[in-house]
Amino acid sequence: MVTTDEKGPLTAKKKSVIIRSCDGDEFLVSESAAVLSTSLKKILEEKEDRLIHLSDIDNKTLAMVIAYLSTHADDGLSDDLKRSFDQEFVSGKEFDVLKYLVLATDTLQVTCLCYTVAKKMADIMKNKLVEWVRREFDIQNDYTPEAEAEIRRLDAWAWDDRQLEDD
Protein backbone atom coordinates (compact mmCIF):
# COMPACT_ATOMS: atom_id res chain seq x y z
CA MET A 1 0.00 0.00 0.00
CA VAL A 2 2.94 2.33 0.42
CA THR A 3 4.09 2.76 -3.11
CA THR A 4 2.48 5.99 -4.14
CA ASP A 5 5.49 8.25 -4.15
CA GLU A 6 8.09 5.88 -5.52
CA LYS A 7 9.66 7.88 -8.31
CA GLY A 8 12.98 7.87 -10.09
CA PRO A 9 16.10 8.60 -8.07
CA LEU A 10 16.40 12.06 -9.61
CA THR A 11 13.13 13.23 -8.11
CA ALA A 12 13.64 14.84 -4.78
CA LYS A 13 11.54 12.26 -3.03
CA LYS A 14 10.53 12.98 0.52
CA LYS A 15 11.13 10.17 2.96
CA SER A 16 8.04 8.68 4.48
CA VAL A 17 7.10 6.82 7.60
CA ILE A 18 4.21 4.46 8.25
CA ILE A 19 2.37 4.91 11.49
CA ARG A 20 -0.02 2.23 12.71
CA SER A 21 -2.81 3.03 15.14
CA CYS A 22 -4.00 0.71 17.86
CA ASP A 23 -6.91 -0.27 15.60
CA GLY A 24 -4.40 -1.58 13.09
CA ASP A 25 -4.85 1.01 10.32
CA GLU A 26 -1.74 2.44 8.76
CA PHE A 27 -1.01 6.04 7.83
CA LEU A 28 1.65 7.21 5.44
CA VAL A 29 3.32 10.34 6.75
CA SER A 30 6.22 12.37 5.44
CA GLU A 31 9.22 12.25 7.72
CA SER A 32 9.30 16.04 7.94
CA ALA A 33 5.79 15.92 9.44
CA ALA A 34 6.52 12.99 11.74
CA VAL A 35 9.55 14.61 13.35
CA LEU A 36 7.43 17.51 14.56
CA SER A 37 6.46 15.01 17.23
CA THR A 38 9.37 14.75 19.64
CA SER A 39 8.51 11.12 20.44
CA LEU A 40 8.33 10.03 16.80
CA LYS A 41 11.57 11.86 16.12
CA LYS A 42 13.31 9.90 18.87
CA ILE A 43 11.92 6.60 17.58
CA LEU A 44 13.05 7.38 14.03
CA GLU A 45 16.53 8.25 15.24
CA GLU A 46 16.81 4.96 17.05
CA LYS A 47 15.47 2.46 14.55
CA GLU A 48 15.92 1.74 10.88
CA ASP A 49 12.43 0.39 10.44
CA ARG A 50 10.02 2.92 8.93
CA LEU A 51 6.97 1.43 10.63
CA ILE A 52 5.89 2.78 13.97
CA HIS A 53 3.15 1.13 15.98
CA LEU A 54 1.28 3.28 18.44
CA SER A 55 -0.59 1.01 20.80
CA ASP A 56 -2.28 3.86 22.65
CA ILE A 57 -3.76 5.94 19.88
CA ASP A 58 -6.92 5.09 17.95
CA ASN A 59 -7.60 5.69 14.26
CA LYS A 60 -9.75 8.75 14.56
CA THR A 61 -7.38 10.56 16.90
CA LEU A 62 -4.28 9.59 14.98
CA ALA A 63 -5.77 10.86 11.73
CA MET A 64 -6.37 14.24 13.36
CA VAL A 65 -2.87 14.48 14.79
CA ILE A 66 -1.37 13.56 11.42
CA ALA A 67 -3.46 16.20 9.66
CA TYR A 68 -2.04 18.72 12.11
CA LEU A 69 1.55 17.55 11.68
CA SER A 70 1.31 17.57 7.88
CA THR A 71 -0.10 21.09 7.83
CA HIS A 72 2.64 22.36 10.11
CA ALA A 73 5.35 20.65 8.07
CA ASP A 74 4.15 22.36 4.90
CA ASP A 75 6.70 25.07 4.14
CA GLY A 76 4.36 26.59 1.58
CA LEU A 77 1.93 27.76 4.26
CA SER A 78 2.44 31.04 6.05
CA ASP A 79 2.46 31.23 9.84
CA ASP A 80 -0.82 33.12 9.70
CA LEU A 81 -2.46 30.31 7.75
CA LYS A 82 -1.10 27.76 10.18
CA ARG A 83 -2.47 29.74 13.10
CA SER A 84 -5.93 29.92 11.57
CA PHE A 85 -5.71 26.19 10.82
CA ASP A 86 -5.02 25.62 14.53
CA GLN A 87 -8.06 27.64 15.51
CA GLU A 88 -10.34 25.75 13.15
CA PHE A 89 -8.75 22.49 14.15
CA VAL A 90 -10.11 22.67 17.69
CA SER A 91 -13.25 24.69 17.10
CA GLY A 92 -16.48 22.74 17.33
CA LYS A 93 -14.80 19.56 18.55
CA GLU A 94 -16.52 17.82 21.41
CA PHE A 95 -14.86 17.64 24.78
CA ASP A 96 -14.59 13.89 24.47
CA VAL A 97 -12.67 14.15 21.21
CA LEU A 98 -10.39 16.78 22.71
CA LYS A 99 -9.57 14.47 25.60
CA TYR A 100 -8.26 11.77 23.27
CA LEU A 101 -6.40 14.43 21.34
CA VAL A 102 -4.71 15.96 24.35
CA LEU A 103 -3.68 12.53 25.52
CA ALA A 104 -2.27 11.65 22.10
CA THR A 105 -0.37 14.91 21.83
CA ASP A 106 1.07 14.29 25.28
CA THR A 107 2.18 10.80 24.29
CA LEU A 108 3.59 11.97 20.97
CA GLN A 109 5.02 15.14 22.52
CA VAL A 110 3.53 17.58 20.07
CA THR A 111 3.86 20.58 22.35
CA CYS A 112 2.08 23.22 20.26
CA LEU A 113 -0.98 21.08 19.59
CA CYS A 114 -1.11 19.94 23.21
CA TYR A 115 -1.15 23.61 24.19
CA THR A 116 -3.90 24.49 21.71
CA VAL A 117 -6.11 21.57 22.70
CA ALA A 118 -5.58 22.14 26.44
CA LYS A 119 -6.54 25.78 26.02
CA LYS A 120 -9.70 24.82 24.15
CA MET A 121 -10.61 22.34 26.89
CA ALA A 122 -10.08 25.02 29.53
CA ASP A 123 -12.33 27.39 27.59
CA ILE A 124 -15.07 24.77 27.51
CA MET A 125 -14.68 24.03 31.23
CA LYS A 126 -15.30 27.64 32.21
CA ASN A 127 -18.80 28.15 33.54
CA LYS A 128 -19.45 24.41 33.74
CA LEU A 129 -20.83 22.73 36.81
CA VAL A 130 -18.88 20.41 39.07
CA GLU A 131 -21.00 17.45 37.97
CA TRP A 132 -20.30 18.21 34.33
CA VAL A 133 -16.56 18.19 34.90
CA ARG A 134 -16.73 14.99 36.95
CA ARG A 135 -18.69 13.28 34.21
CA GLU A 136 -16.52 14.48 31.33
CA PHE A 137 -13.29 13.49 33.07
CA ASP A 138 -14.74 10.22 34.44
CA ILE A 139 -14.05 11.35 37.98
CA GLN A 140 -15.53 9.46 40.92
CA ASN A 141 -16.12 11.76 43.83
CA ASP A 142 -14.28 9.93 46.63
CA TYR A 143 -14.67 12.60 49.29
CA THR A 144 -16.77 11.98 52.33
CA PRO A 145 -19.49 14.63 52.70
CA GLU A 146 -17.61 15.97 55.73
CA ALA A 147 -14.35 16.29 53.80
CA GLU A 148 -16.07 18.02 50.91
CA ALA A 149 -17.78 20.43 53.27
CA GLU A 150 -14.45 21.28 54.86
CA ILE A 151 -12.84 22.09 51.52
CA ARG A 152 -15.78 24.28 50.64
CA ARG A 153 -15.39 26.09 53.92
CA LEU A 154 -11.63 26.58 53.64
CA ASP A 155 -11.65 27.93 50.11
CA ALA A 156 -15.15 29.34 50.02
CA TRP A 157 -13.93 32.22 47.82
CA ALA A 158 -13.35 29.80 44.94
CA TRP A 159 -17.08 29.05 44.64
CA ASP A 160 -18.50 32.43 45.54
CA ASP A 161 -19.93 32.97 42.08
CA ARG A 162 -21.47 30.80 39.40
CA GLN A 163 -18.31 29.19 38.10
CA LEU A 164 -17.80 25.52 38.86
CA GLU A 165 -20.76 25.38 41.21
CA ASP A 166 -22.72 22.41 42.23
CA ASP A 167 -26.19 22.14 40.81
Binding site: V133, R134, D142, D155, A158, W159, L164
Partner: peptide
Protein backbone atom coordinates in the same frame (compact mmCIF):
# COMPACT_ATOMS: atom_id res chain seq x y z
CA UNK B 1 -9.87 30.85 41.22
CA UNK B 2 -11.31 28.20 38.89
CA UNK B 3 -8.22 26.10 39.17
CA UNK B 4 -8.61 26.05 42.95
CA UNK B 5 -12.30 25.24 42.55
CA UNK B 6 -11.40 21.94 40.90
CA UNK B 7 -10.14 20.73 44.28
CA UNK B 8 -13.74 19.75 45.03
CA UNK B 9 -13.84 17.16 42.21
CA UNK B 10 -12.12 14.26 43.99
Amino acid sequence: KLSVATSILA
